[in-house]
Write a protein that binds this DNA or RNA. Structure first.
Lengths: 148, 148
DNA sequence: AAAATATAGTTACATATGAAACAAATTAAT
DNA sequence: ATTAATTTGTTTCATATGTAACTATATTTT
């Protein structure tokens, strides 16, 4: 590709980000409008639904969100009575996190909707295409130079 | 996939966003550290390098960035003497945008580096895989429900 | 052609964000 | 065993952000 016809639209990082944002924004409508939660809230609930007995720092590493944002989002989720913070035995600094009854109930209602939404998207792809996509994303991820 | 083993990591929007951000952050190091510009600055320069005689609103639509952000970034780029704002004949509200000499010079140094960076990434894929990726991203984009 | 609407771009304001400072607890080093 | 260094999570503060209000101009309606 020559310099004169460099097109941002076709440039890998831009194209990927644009598609990913488009898809993420669309999915966001589900948890925002139907469940009244934000993206970090959804991410935390989705994790706590599976990974039990986790502390804030681990959550921060898992979802790659800085600890300030995690701390603030956890405060909101606690305020909304969707999670419970409990002490970790043997470490008075950390707080164990878990879904409350209503948090778990929200999780149980949300996950099938999320999977349904995902299935609608994936129905546009053949099984091969889906596997190709996963493999290609994986290759690109690993190939990324000097990652932050 | 049952509800008990729902994994955020494998969920399409999350996986795509995570890969895209990883790649975009890596590329950001190039324009940030080597050229001292931010993401919106890079996007604007990349567009002005190709699309001449464009006004701020058109830029806003092209790179899908709200007009406030565009306005502020253009102010910075003008301050840095990388762009020139000129009047549009027949419409005193709009401002025509173009790269200054040094803006164009930066563009000419940056684009080959960007393409080199992209080529390194794409060298990990076969030609078929690259075409597959483009086609799949396209399908997913079009299939996205109720896009914002 | 005057009045009403719409558009381009900037500014003001209220909120979101993240780096750095912090308090409290834990672990490592001497 | 003290001291020093590290870790966990929160708070502070300065900056970034986006909505809404705004100014100026253009277009449409009556």
């Amino acid at each position: 590709m020559s310099m004169e016809n460099f097109l941002l639209e076709e440039f890998l990082p831009y194209k990927l980000v644009r598609t990913a944002e488009h898809i993420a924004n669309s999915f966001a409508e589900l948890y925002e409008t139907e469940f009244g939660i934000t993206r970090p809230e959804w991410q935390i609930i989705a994790n706590l639904g599976v990974q039990k007995n986790i502390i804030a720092r681990e959550l921060s590493e898992l979802i790659r969100l800085d600890k300030v944002k995690i701390s603030r989002t956890l405060a909101v989720l606690e305020e909304k009575k969707l999670i419970i913070k409990s002490p970790v035995e043997g470490d008075l600094r950390a707080t164990q996190l878990s879904l409350s009854a209503s948090g778990h109930e929200l999780y149980q209602r949300l996950v099938p909707k999320a999977l349904e939404w995902e299935n609608h998207m994936l129905d546009g792809l053949t099984g091969t295409q889906y596997r190709d996509l996963c493999r290609i994303l994986d290759i690109l991820y690993k190939r990324t130079p000097n990652q932050k």
